[in-house]
Each structure stands twice: as C-alpha cells, then as structure tokens.
C-alpha cells in the first residue's frame, strides 16, 4: 500500500532511514519487504566476510549481509537489538543487518543530492546520493550494488 502511495506521486520519494556503524543511511521504501528482529543465521562456507549467513524467512532461505562490513565500515556490535531490513534486490531477497531503523522519510525527488566527492570509492559505488534531513546527512543506498558481483544466482 505504501508502494502505491509513493508511486502515485512521482515527485515524492519515501525512504526508510536507519543507522549502522554510527552513520545514517536510507533505502527506497519500494525495495523493502519487511523489517524484523535479528535471529542467529547459519554460517555459509566460503562466503564473503560481510555475509553473515542465512536465516529462514517464512520458508525461504535468505542471506544476511552485514551492511557495515559491506561498506567497509567498522563492524557493529553483535547484539539482539540489531534489526534486519529485508529487501528485494533484483529477483533476490536479501536481509540487511543494521543497528536500528530510525525513520520513514518523505522527500521530494529534488531533495536527493549527488554523492559528495569525499566519500570513499567503495562507498561511492553503492550510493545513489545523499539526503539532508534535520542537519543530518543521510546516504541513499543503491541496493542493487550491495550484492557481491561474483555471486550471481545460478539461473
């Protein structure tokens, strides 16, 4: 329902804002399936370091990416208070492990600004831009870039 809300007005974007590694990020609400509490994942062998493992999401096996590690930030504390943002990326379902969801933002499309040059190369590739809200700099993630490029689905 939220999806249609933002879809009807192309000039407005709804974003889910969250914190991890003491930084603010957001993703387009259209790519978010649900937000759920942390549960211990099963480890995956030979996985990239930022892949925590897999959890069961109502019968589907979903990999969990530690967003802080993915972005090359310092690792976050392993606690039960962390949350998982379940996102649909291309045709896959992926859980993003973050510290906390902070807000749902509604911003005009013009409110998304280009990523400043100072961001590191790793980070820049995964950002679509930034949103300034209440003097906070919120990084808009390009979720499509989060998946490791060398782990393509088999099909």
């Amino acid at each position: 329902m939220r999806a249609t809300g933002s879809a009807t007005d192309p000039n407005v974007r709804e974003l889910v804002a969250f914190r991890t590694a003491r930084q603010d990020f957001c993703v387009d609400i259209l790519s978010v399936r649900e937000i759920r509490g942390w549960s211990r994942p099963a480890l995956l062998p030979h996985a990239p370091h930022y892949v925590q493992g897999v959890i069961n999401l109502r019968g589907a096996v979903v990999p969990i990416l530690d967003l802080a590690r993915r972005l090359g930030l310092e690792p976050i504390e392993d606690t039960d208070r962390n949350v998982i943002i379940v996102a649909a990326i291309q045709n896959r379902i992926v859980g993003l492990l973050v510290e906390a969801v902070t807000d749902i933002l509604t911003v005009p499309s013009s409110g998304v600004q280009p990523t400043p040059d100072l961001a590191s190369e790793t980070t820049r590739n995964m950002l679509r831009g930034v949103v300034v809200q209440d003097s906070r700099l919120i990084r808009l993630l390009d979720v499509g870039q989060l998946l490791p490029q060398d782990v393509e689905p088999a099909a």
């Binding site: 549960s39 099963a42 062998p45 996985a47 069961n56 096996v61 990999p63 045709n91 689905p153």
Partner: peptide, 25 residues
Amino acid sequence: GLEANYGQIPGIAAATVLGDGSVAL
C-alpha cells in the same frame, strides 16, 4: 535452494529449515 537468493556454494547442496525455525545447510 540457496541459488535463488544467494548462489551456489562448494560442498553445499542446499539448505533446510529445522524444527526450531533455524536454517541448516
């Protein structure tokens, strides 16, 4: 299957969901 959301892993055929709701490879 792991392929749909992740990909193939050497040594792992698939995953399953156990009685407590957790995943086992």
